[in-house]
Design a protein around this nucleic acid. Sequence first.
DNA 1: GTCTATATTTAGATAGAC
DNA 2: GTCTATCTAAATATAGAC
Lengths: 211, 211
Amino acid sequence: MADTARNRKKNIRAENEALILQAAEKVFAEAGYGGATMQLIADVAGLPKANLHYYFPTKDELYRRVVETIFQIWLDAANVFENSDGPAEGIGAYIDAKMEISRRHPAGSKVWASEVMHRAPVIQEWLESTLNVWTDGRIALIESWIAEGRMDPVDPRHLLYMIWATTQHYADFGHQIETLNNGAPLDDAQWETAKTNVRRIILKGIGVSPD
Amino acid sequence: MADTARNRKKNIRAENEALILQAAEKVFAEAGYGGATMQLIADVAGLPKANLHYYFPTKDELYRRVVETIFQIWLDAANVFENSDGPAEGIGAYIDAKMEISRRHPAGSKVWASEVMHRAPVIQEWLESTLNVWTDGRIALIESWIAEGRMDPVDPRHLLYMIWATTQHYADFGHQIETLNNGAPLDDAQWETAKTNVRRIILKGIGVSPD
DNA sequence: GTCTATATTTAGATAGAC
DNA sequence: GTCTATCTAAATATAGAC
């Protein structure tokens, strides 16, 4: 009985936190940290402002939680890189995965971009540790592929930057892309075209023939 | 005499406006529109806050002026595209010009990115007119190169997006790149490496051999 | 766990002396 | 043209009844 009550409370908490985090991601993405207000997030979430402060004591804490959920998604996508047996599959799948994230989580991508542009007040430590280690590992992997003659001797670091830049552009600059598409979001076929072009140009650019 | 006095006043105005615009660009880039405060901009410019309001009545007006100065720079760079006789020179020079802008005007690039991410409240009209026309013109030019067999039949639109994304990434995500470079900004040699890699991968990726 | 009312701080903007 | 003092609005955050 006590357990049931406790579980019900837990569920309410989990549901409301998820609701608030979703609204916050959207508002932080569209207005930036400084432009976002607790009132607006509350309105989007459909809750009174005081409830936000009940679940997340400060705006800063809420923002931090939003950012954390994002790089978890990115880390998951990074695995396709590891579980491949060559540049065509590994880099190709990584590009596909990143394009899919841009399509499915555009708000998250924008929050990340904004955070980095503002000198990463929240994720600086993570950039220096996790991302740095991940990048070095991927660079080593790419260098081994180059040594085996499976792709051109490009600078792996700048190749990674190009992949990040190009794939995230479809989320971060989605509004510009939409405007240049007569005000309409890319449809399924257009996303497919985008994905194919990005993958083909980059793979050919580094001397890899697609599978 | 009256003329001299008038000119002196004009100079003071011009100088102070330039001083404020420079400080504002920096602050808007680092804090976003919502995070930037007139007080902070005034501090960076070394002027009392009231002076900002004397030269720029509202924060909105000041921001608008900052954004305007940026796309003038971008438009100038776009000309190298036109005055070329083929994809190797035209696209190669455009990439170089955009990389150089990312290096010299990182703050401006960030303000632009932020503006687009927030659904372009100030530049929407300009996106729909000037940028749209410019893009269509460049697409037609690239399509003519493709028809002449001077490059692969890629989708010109997504090629342009890739160039924008990759070159601007070096400004917008400069902090992340710096962090992954042991906390140091890219030096001359590293910028050269970046530029060479970007140009080479993209040109090869679209079937163009460099000059 | 919810929500109205409110305390407190800080922002954008202006008045008015110099 | 400069700058101190100040107004007003809006933001974060909390108190306390329910």
